[in-house]
Nucleic acid binder design. Structure first.
Lengths: 219, 219
DNA sequence: TTCTGCCACAGGAAATTTCCTGTATTTGCC
DNA sequence: GGCAAATACAGGAAATTTCCTGTGGCAGAA
């Protein structure tokens, strides 16, 4: 019996998944469901039988997929996480893989593939689709192709940079962002420059759209 | 027997909905499903028994919910449309209501509410949640409060404006956008100014984020 | 210790965005 | 015909963004 938990903020999707999963195979059982990371923390604490696998969304209010996965891998390293998200950007795939998830599926896959993935993660410990593998290869390729060593696609932003990006997705001017972050406008300009280069964008608009696409700032 | 069709680009969600719906009541039957508007057009053409109700997503590739609803209300005015979307912005709700949909639900509702909504749309012809009604009231209020007559929240953008917004969500400069649209940069500046005022934004970044939130440009 | 990378910061300047006011044309309408 | 509304366009200017090069501190590695 494979015990499964689901974390997704769309109740309709969650309920649909639950009976899809229990229908597709009698080996699967849902032990709990959660609206977001915070609720997962509560549910898992009072859970007598821990799930083997957690199906995890990325975009969620309160506590998103990235933060939740990070917390889970620290607190419950034995639970295997399979991401099921509509975000299909290389960025978030790579970021999740770095955090140690065992698979990454789009919400547009066949139910049968979901079942295959769950079984594979349970038995082999991982399940990577061609898309994920492809993105990974591509990321590594583009990376190794620039001998400068500076990572091109596998960038992880630090806390300051994330804070800056989130503020850049507002109507604030750089001057105002500087005030909010207690930094000089010139330092902010440095962050901007560094991020433009990392993410290969040329304007603040493109930076903001990147942030949305990659779940860095909420919808 | 209430015949239902589902249009949503996330297969997992769709399949989940299908058995959720058939499970929740024996009166419901799914006549077909589609990935997006284009596929709906094909499916509905070769459909012997038209659906009474179509469950419609907003964000979709190829042909989105707005375009699809518009086409449907022209070609099949008798089919009632119930939007089921994760986009909860006042903007898209109002836009859909204007196009004549019979209800607007979030993807975070209870399955039982979905059933209630379907029944209500079939029997009464509509189903509006408190959220929708609330947004509507708010929209009308803010609207009537500005005697200038210029609509504040119930704005509908015309084709040119939509084209401009979509181009504004790129790295192109206004000069380049002007070239693409075969207009003077000064005219483009006029569109910009008009939209900033309509949408109550002060920067291009905010305009771009509005476009994303309201399904005007694809993720 | 010296080197290297990273962070905070500056001066200066070009490019772009944003804002203001104002004109000519067309279109539909009473 | 006159009038309002929508559209395309201009000059001019201030504010912001973007890009360049360069400095100094500081922490960790060789």
């Amino acid at each position: 019996m494979i015990r499964i938990a689901i974390v997704d903020d769309h109740k309709l999707f969650r309920k649909g998944m639950i009976n899809l999963i229990e229908l597709v195979s009698p080996d699967f059982t849902i032990v709990f469901e959660a609206d977001n990371g915070l609720e997962l923390m509560r549910s898992i604490a009072q859970c007598t039988e821990l799930p083997h696998i957690i199906l995890m969304d990325v975009n969620m209010p309160e506590m998103d997929g990235f933060a939740t996965v990070q917390w889970l891998t620290e607190q419950y390293p034995d639970i295997r996480i399979l991401v099921v998200s509509m975000l299909q950007s290389e960025e978030s795939i790579i970021r999740m893989l770095r955090l140690g998830v065992k698979g990454y599926l789009g919400k547009d896959v066949e139910p049968s593939e979901l079942a295959t993935a769950i079984k594979a993660v349970y038995e082999k410990g991982y399940y990577y689709t061609d898309t994920v593998t492809g993105q990974l290869i591509h990321a590594i390729k583009t990376d190794s192709m620039r001998p400068g060593g500076r990572s091109h696609t596998l960038h992880q932003l630090n806390e300051r940079e994330l804070a800056f990006v989130r503020l850049a997705c507002t109507e604030l001017t750089y001057q105002e962002i500087a005030d909010k972050m207690f930094l000089s406008p010139k330092t902010i300009d440095g962050y901007r420059k560094a991020l433009f280069e990392k993410l290969q964008v040329k304007t603040r608009v493109a930076l903001a759209l990147w942030a949305v696409r990659n779940g860095v700032c909420q919808l």
